[in-house]
């Protein structure tokens, strides 16, 4: 286990979330209230400690940063006003920029499909986004193998019949401006 990792890593996180992170006294309140802690391999208070110890690889390769549902319970209840949910955001951002495979690879693939949909049409088109996600994440292949695709098709048909699936992509007059925002965002990466 690395004790002192990439010094620059901790600074990047602190710059983004504020110096309150140094005041963490490991009270576990974030971990106790986290609704998805059962699916995590590191609890939120451990992530904060690891960040302060500069353990870059340890936190970036964790499952925790991807199963975090961004519900903000930790941030809301932290007695020291540490923006814990924002720490998770920054870690997800840094991990995605690294280009390495995530511990939960489907989550960043979902984010990409979601953002690609915005970039293309200015708004999310649920059908296109889900199609891209299931193809690129390998979910489609998996479900074809296990037969689980039948459940998805069943649910899809039910939703379609109830008018809940918009077939045509949305029309947004602001697409050009949105594309420009995406171009600018490329220049504002963390690392």
């Amino acid at each position: 286990m690395e004790l002192i990792g990439d010094k620059n890593f901790r600074d990047v996180v602190v710059d983004a979330v504020g110096e309150e992170i140094f005041t963490c006294y490991q009270c576990y309140k974030c971990s106790a209230g986290c609704p998805v802690s059962f699916a995590m391999d590191m609890l939120p208070h451990q992530v904060i400690r690891s960040v302060l110890f500069n353990q870059k690889e340890r936190v970036l390769s964790s499952r925790t940063i991807w199963v975090c549902a961004a519900c903000e319970t930790c941030t809301t209840r932290c007695p020291n006003e540490i923006e814990i949910a924002k720490v998770m955001d920054v870690l997800r951002q840094i991990q995605q920029e690294s280009g390495k495979q995530a511990k939960e690879p489907k989550v960043p693939i979902f984010h990409k499909a979601f953002l690609d949909s915005i970039k293309k049409t200015g708004r999310v088109h649920e059908l296109t986004m889900i199609r891209n996600y299931t193809q690129k994440s390998g979910e489609l292949r998996e479900k074809l193998k296990t037969g689980e695709w039948k459940n998805d098709v069943k649910l899809g048909i039910k939703m379609f019949l109830r008018g809940k699936l918009k077939v045509m992509p949305p029309k947004c007059g602001g697409v050009k401006e949105v594309k420009k925002i995406f171009e600018q965002a490329k220049e504002h990466k963390k690392a």
């Binding site: 961004a70 997800r92 951002q93 984010h111 708004r123 965002a185 990466k189 963390k190």
Partner: peptide, 14 residues
């Protein structure tokens, strides 16, 4: 246009 939802704040601060 879309607010970006959780995918934007999980991916890029800007």
């Amino acid at each position: 246009s879309c607010c970006g939802a959780s995918s934007a704040h999980s991916t890029n601060e800007f």
